[in-house]
Amino acid sequence: MSDENAPEQKVKFYQKGTYTVGNRLVNVRQRSVQASMDRSNSLTCGHRACQGCGEALGARYAIDAAMRATNNQLIAINATGCLEVFTTPYPETSWQIPWMHSLFGNAAAVAAGVAAAMRVKGLKQVRTIAQGGDGGTMDIGFGCLSGMFERNDDVLYICYDNEAYMNTGVQRSSATPVAARTATTPAMGANPGNSFNSGKNLPLIAMAHNIPYVATASVAALHDLEAKVTRAMSLHGARYLHIHVPCPLGWGSAPHDTIQVARLAIKSGLFPLIEAEHGMVTATVPIRQPVPVTDYLKLQKRFAHLLRGGEENARKLAAIQTIADNNIKRFNLVRKEAPRV
């Protein structure tokens, strides 16, 4: 993809000499595929995400893919949350696209309004996406999201799921996995961490709205993620993409392990990669070599209390393994065919 004649971006000193994915300042031969000038880099350097942030990575790939799919005719609406805060500390902005933040719980509704405005203005080519974290999507924004789904508004909603309220300091959300330690589910007492038999599966709930497209994706499978965004943008009506984005700060994982953690979530069966159209599963990404859930859990301090031995912990680990096994069964993830991950 790298082009000998590619123009170099204006030098920003802090970027010079780094080998960050997408860096256009390094030698042309050393540039990665993401540094191609065909990529819009809608979310540019200079934002203030933590080291190893899965959400920043996921957002950049998702938005760039959406930009390519729409010939750069894209408007993004952002819920309150990490992505909003780290990209737009006034007077700076990392967004190279028309972007608006309104509130925590209304991104889906605001995006529906933008899509309606584009319809009345006859700007069919301009497409709308909404994006938010798991709290803004699954909890406080759930009403607006369900409304946007059932009206089949022409919006792609992207949820960057890092499994807790990270922006406010790692509090539990309805996406927090069972047993996980957060600031409001501390690893204390007889039942440390998040309680069992809690939480919800938003992709399945989205599917229950019979909307044109629902998919899950992960920062560990970026080509798959891009393909799903491209597919989503080829369709009209309400579409939902749920992206698993590890948060080193909140999960207690090493920043350099973000991709590894995300990959183990897929390989253990805890985060299945699926696609569905009009409520029917159309594709899943098979797991070549399933791994036990402990491989995934042990990289994260939020589960450290589970791994200290004892009968009770063994029962809990078995329960988490059952969740993974059920996912594998439900979506037939372990099967004989050409694997994609």
């Binding site: 719980g105 209304n106 309004g113 405005a117 584009m118 009403g143 369900s146 009206r151």
Partner: peptide, 24 residues
């Protein structure tokens, strides 16, 4: 004109926020 039946007053004004910001 787009007439949108929403699921709450919070959404009603939120949709209007989006459409107004998009110039409608």
């Amino acid at each position: 004109c787009e007439f949108i039946n929403v699921e709450s007053e919070f959404a009603a004004l939120s949709v209007a926020i989006g459409s107004s910001a998009a110039g409608a």
